[in-house]
Design a protein around this nucleic acid. Structure first.
Length: 481
RNA sequence: GGCCCCGUCGUCUAGCGGCCUAGGACGCCGCCCUCUCAAGGCGGUAACGCCGGUUCAAAUCCGGUCGGGGCUACCA
């Protein structure tokens, strides 16, 4: 039987990094086994679900490059992959379960339930509701007929226990005294997550349910439901959760949690994917930078780590730098162009685009984030803006003024205006003035870029062009007096 | 409170009873390279939570303990 997995987020929030990792593991598993990766929307909670979140999930998944074979937008045999459009099916299953005695109408009030739980906890017993406050079936039917509101609960067999083999966790057992007679249909007739999700997994032929550990304790419910439906059990795999740097559950206060936020912050999708994959999975050898196709080839769910991982951006930043450097120059320049234009608040003309391509390789090897590129090249496309700290540190040093003036004179008459020509001329000047490269070149850097940190000097001058280079040197010389 | 899951450098991890003097990566520190900053090269720092048990031998198996996390809704 071929592998079928699904990623089924609820559109009640943006796709966050934890969800991204869950989607990725599903994707890797499906691709490794040549199976299908399905995208479903578990939107039974109409109050909290929004179209905006749904859109964000789709876009984030596409950005990461995790294409799905079936489901939202791409369609498939099931018709709809939105739970909100399958209500009738869930109600039908609920009716069947009631008919065969696996579920019942429940009239327990919120007060009764709360009192039961409170007392159970106080006396050290399980707070799982066991149906003790329910009327006998004949009474129930009468009350229902009289129009009394009721939920539908699943009748968990008691005593009993459910044991299953989780691919990442091993054998797990839950005693049914810990599993409550959970609601499958709300009093308004809509299904709860447990029902909708399980029915869909059965109907869609899902073979492996790969999801977060937050659902581990709910798995007995899903297994019991599947059994009551007379369907074959899926294999389960529960991924440990992602934590913040303080070891607590990852949340907004730890910084960005939305996948989109990383795209906007200048991260590359392949770097993000690579980093996420390594949060809980290792290819086994000492490899760290692993391209997606290689991950697909080597991924094994059984090797996924049981421990919760801390989402720490230090390594992600480093990895992003690695991926930036792996880009060919043309792609890098292309990726960075809109960011540069946004920073300058204008578009670049053809000549400037060519200049950007010229300087691109020199910033490419320095960048960790695409978003830090604009400020590094700004001096080439906008007017000079001196960083006072740099100026004070460099331009007041002995020899700074002679270097700037000397460079001015030489470059004005330089025949060979090229990176090599500029370097040759300036090195000659250093020798003549008996200045070290550091002492003689730093003032020039500040003069043309405004900062003591910039792309390489000769390359920067070449990109800037002779006219502007000299103008800036003159401007700096004047400012030093 | 009850139940379940987890516990190797600061972080992500390798390790599946002897190859462990515990390996790799990030970070951090130092050196080299060098026109700045990076990148790169080289080196260093740093961990089996604790206590028992099994065994000739334990990071690896078992028990306990402590710590972290999850669930305990007519949320998912």
């Amino acid at each position: 039987m071929s592998v079928r997995v699904r990623f089924a987020p609820s559109p009640t929030g943006y796709l966050h990094v934890g969800g991204g990792r869950t989607a990725l593991y599903n994707y890797l598993f499906a691709r490794h086994h040549g199976g299908s990766f399905i995208l479903r929307s578990d939107d039974t909670d109409r109050a909290r679900s929004t179209a905006e979140y749904q859109q964000d999930i789709l876009e984030s998944l596409r950005w990461l490059g995790l294409d799905w074979d079936e489901g939202l937008e791409v369609g498939g045999d099931q018709g709809t992959y939105r739970q909100s459009e399958r209500l009738a099916r869930y109600q039908e299953v609920a009716a069947e379960l009631i008919a065969e005695g696996s579920a019942y109408y429940s009239f327990a009030t919120a007060e009764q339930l709360e009192a039961f739980r409170e007392e159970a906890m106080a006396s050290g017993r399980s707070p799982a509701y066991d149906g003790r406050h329910e009327p006998d079936p004949a009474d129930a039917m009468a009350r229902l007929a009289a129009g009394e509101p009721a939920t539908v609960r699943f009748a968990v067999p008691r005593p009993g226990e459910t044991t299953f083999v989780d691919v990442v966790r091993g054998t797990v057992t839950f005693d049914h005294v810990q599993v409550d007679d959970f609601v499958i249909l709300r009093s308004n007739g809509t299904p709860t997550y447990h029902l909708a999700s399980t029915v869909d997994d059965v109907d869609f032929g899902i073979t492996h349910v790969i999801r977060g550990e937050d659902l581990l304790a709910s798995t007995p419910k899903h297994i019991l439901l599947t059994e009551a439906m007379g369907a074959e059990q899926a294999t389960y795999a529960h991924l440990s959760l992602l934590m913040g740097p303080d070891g607590k559950k990852l949340s907004k206060r730890h910084g960005h949690t939305a996948i989109k936020a990383y795209r906007d912050a200048g991260y590359l999708a392949p770097a993000m994917v690579n980093y996420l994959a390594l949060l809980g999975w290792s290819p086994g050898d000492d490899e760290t930078v692993v391209p997606l196709d290689e991950m697909v080839r080597r991924f094994d769910l059984a090797e996924v780590s049981k421990n919760p991982a801390i989402f720490d951006t230090d390594k992600l930043d480093w990895m992003n730098g690695v991926y930036i450097r792996e880009l060919d120059v043309a792609s890098f320049a292309e990726a960075v162009l809109p960011l540069v234009e946004e920073d300058l608040e204008r578009s670049l003309d053809a000549g400037e685009v060519a200049t950007l391509r010229e300087i691109a390789p020199h910033v490419q090897e320095r960048a960790k984030l695409l978003s830090e590129v604009p400020e590094q090249v700004r001096f080439v496309f906008a007017g000079i803006e001196y960083d006072e700290g740099s100026w004070n540190k460099v331009m007041t040093k002995e020899g700074a003024d002679v270097a700037v003036k000397g460079a001015c004179e030489r470059l004005a008459v330089l025949d060979n205006w090229s990176i090599e020509g500029i370097e040759g001329s300036l090195r000659e000047m250093l020798a003549t003035l008996e200045l070290s490269a550091r002492k003689g070149l730093q003032p020039l850097r500040v003069a043309i870029s405004g900062s003591s940190v910039s792309p390489p000097l000769f390359e920067s001058m070449a990109a800037l062009g002779r006219e502007r280079t000299i103008a800036r040197l003159e401007q700096a010389a004047a400012r030093m007096e």
